[in-house]
């Protein structure tokens, strides 16, 4: 299936969805002018991927900032992953947060509470 590769800007995240190379990643900053237009292709891609997923899907979120409108769309992505998990597939979410960013850590904890999908919190140090 087709690969999505979007280079990040100062208001949109880097997105890599590459089933063949097993890379599923959203990173950077997210405050797009039109959140729906930005995230729709990603959600559609996940629908398509869900019809024939890899044996294992590790989905990485490594965001440094997202606005409230994006938070809703990130939940939509996580709900797609929840469906994939509930359909019996091996799915793990890796939620990366800067070690000194309690808010980003807490955001991950909140998502983990809402969706029923294996969730790993991973702190990292900004160099």
């Amino acid at each position: 299936m087709e690969t999505i590769k979007i280079m990040g800007t100062d208001d949109t995240p880097t997105v890599i969805l590459d089933a063949q190379n097993e890379i599923f990643e959203i990173s950077g900053r997210s405050l797009p002018e039109d959140v729906t237009a930005f995230y729709d292709p990603i959600l559609q891609w996940l629908d398509e991927y869900s019809s024939s997923p890899n044996p294992k899907t590790i989905f990485t979120f490594k965001l440094v900032y997202f606005n409230t409108a994006s938070s809703k769309l990130l939940l939509d992505i996580l709900m797609k992953l929840e469906q994939l998990h509930e359909a019996g597939n091996n799915v793990v979410v890796h939620w990366y947060y800067p070690e000194d960013d309690e808010d980003m850590q807490e955001a991950g904890e909140e998502y983990a509470d809402i969706v029923d999908v294996p969730f790993e919190q991973i702190g990292y140090t900004l160099s």
Binding site: V35, T68, A69, S71, K72, L73, L75, E110
Partner: peptide, 21 residues
């Protein structure tokens, strides 16, 4: 915040009703 994120809909203008919270 969690309830609104789960149950709220994005408005036509892209608002999620989460800003004030």
């Amino acid at each position: 915040y969690k309830t609104q994120m789960r149950e709220g809909r994005l408005s036509e203008k892209g608002g999620a009703g989460l800003g004030f919270i």
